[in-house]
Each structure stands twice: as C-alpha cells, then as structure tokens.
Amino acid sequence: MTAPRWLLPLAGGGALIVLLPLVGLASRVPWSDWWPLVTSEAALTALSLSLRTASAATALALVGGIPIAFVLHELPSRWRALARAVVLIPLVLPPVVGGLALLFAFGRQGLAGDMFGSAVAFTTWAVVLAQTFVALPFVVAAIDAALAARSGRLEAVAATLGASRTRVLTTITLPALVPAIATGAVLAFARALGEFGATLTFAGSLEGVTRTAPLLIYLTRETDPGAAAALSLVLVLVAIIGVTVAYRPAKAVS
C-alpha cells in the first residue's frame, strides 16, 4: 500500500495522543523502586487476583460467546443486526452503567438476586461476572466477523460426505476459526484485566477477594502515586505482550 503523504501528520498527531500518556506514565514510575513496588504483598495479591479472574472470565466468555456468534449467524438477516447490537452493548456501555445493570440483575435485590445474590455478592465470582459481562462481546465480535467471511462451502461439502452437523462444526468450522477465537480470547482477556467501573460498582473492593489491580491502582493513586504508576506499567506490559502475540486482524480467508 502506498498511502498519500498528507496522512503522515494526521497519523503523527493520532499516535501522539496514544503515546504521550504512556510516556507520561513511565516518567512517573520510580524506577529504582519499581521491582519492590510491583512485588509488594498488596500488588502481588491484586495482580494474582486479576490474572485469575481475567482467565476465568475469558473462559466463560468463550464458552458463552462462541455459541452466541453461531446463533447470530443463523438468524434471519433482519433480526441479526438488532440481536448483534444487543449482544455487543457492553462494548459501548460506560462500565459504571454495566455495573449498575449487573447489580439490578445479579445483586441481592436484583432480578436473579434470590438465586445468585447472596452467593455472589462481594465474592471473587462477582468480579468474574463483571469481567465476563464486558469481555464477552469481544469474543462474539471476533467470531461473528470470521463467520461472516466464510462462504459455508466447506461445511456444505462436508455435509454431502455424510458428516453430521456436530461433526461439521468440530472438524471443519471450529478448526478454521482458531485464529479468530484466539483473537477474541486475547481481547477479552485484556478487557477483563482492565475492567474497573463494573467491578467497582458491582463487586466491591477487598484485598485478595475483589480488589483487582485496576482497583488497587485507583485506590493508591493519591496516597502512593509511584506505586500506582509502577503497577499501571505492569498492566500496560501485559496488554502489549498479549495483543502482539495473539491479535491478528480478521483476514478475508474462507
């Protein structure tokens, strides 16, 4: 591709908006204390909680999101656009609104409160639930796009060879979707790791139980800005590594 040159200054400006805050963050990290700060007990507890909850949320998002994408794909096209918008809502919803919505659904006074409320409230599961809520659309969107790019010819031919629908799904479609699933999973994990608003609103904040790394960062931002910056940098690094390794924009292959 040869882009016209006038794109360059615009790209530079855009990049500045992204890069300058990261540089600013790095400039506030007390580098000599960086290692002790990120390996302090509070930091390790929060990071470990974040990694565990984000992994669980990613797993749940895959288990729920992949079937949703398939069902969306099968819907008649006039319903598909609406259904897709509903499923993808957490992508565009302010996280705090997501937290409120979760509260009204799964909180003690919520719609499903009798079933879940007491069991989930202020436990690690509440964090996982909040993270799954915001992460699931990434899985759906990635697989929805990949399915839309498929012609369905391979599946049709497999069916003529006598394969059942389940066999077509497991031997043809899912193996071909592996890159899309990986992309969706990485984005979902990164989003779950960064989840703040919905967790704060819905799950609370207790060390080792519900206080994930972003909550700890917010809590310590004024009392100990250096520690907050150091921990923030860890999240930035995890995000960069994850996205570099596994995120591949959807390609138009069948």
Binding site: S151, R153, L154, A156, V157, A159, T160, L161, G162, A163, S164
Partner: peptide
C-alpha cells in the same frame, strides 16, 4: 445431503 449418496466435486476448491 449426507443421506443422499451423492458426492460433489465443486468448481471452487473445497
């Protein structure tokens, strides 16, 4: 399709 005993060699590569 799977119960027809009809196999197809499609024009596109599958």
């Amino acid at each position: 399709p799977g119960r027809r005993g009809v196999a197809i060699l499609t024009q596109d590569d599958t």
